[in-house]
Design a protein around this nucleic acid. Sequence first.
DNA 1: TTGATTTGTAAAGCATGCTTGACATGAGTT
DNA 2: AACTCATGTCAAGCATGCTTTACAAATCAA
Lengths: 65, 65
Amino acid sequence: MNNHVRELRGEQGWSQADLAERLDVSRQTINAIETGKYDPSLPLAFKIAKLFGRPIETIFVPGEE
Amino acid sequence: MNNHVRELRGEQGWSQADLAERLDVSRQTINAIETGKYDPSLPLAFKIAKLFGRPIETIFVPGEE
DNA sequence: TTGATTTGTAAAGCATGCTTGACATGAGTT
DNA sequence: AACTCATGTCAAGCATGCTTTACAAATCAA
């Protein structure tokens, strides 16, 4: 599952630590998601989508590696 | 996290076992999601949304218990 | 070049998602 | 009554998501 978290974070000028704090998760979790180590849980995906003001489907893209 | 899986499944006249088979998961997984025992993973949420032809946000509703 | 920030990564541990197998109950048949 | 199907639930086990701590490498400012 590919995602656009890094680009969206970059648009806001946020570090991984900044984003982690806003989502109330660890910085390593953000890094793991951005580097494709694993997918977020559904609740975390919702928090990410809400923070960036976009539908989940426009941030996370299944089927890609 | 609340969801409308049971209603959507009912509209199609499918049993939990039917839906499980279409999603390639166990019947117990469907039952657990419908009864609110846990949320699906993000990949499974995508499969459910695709099967019912609706956005994830219209099937899963965070913030409710 | 030194120092501060950012990112990547690793290990160990706990929490959650999903599996198989099994059993109980209720509704509808025959 | 006996049978079948759908649903709920439990236990044990494996896979994944997330945590903290820690350290290394890259970037940029001064």
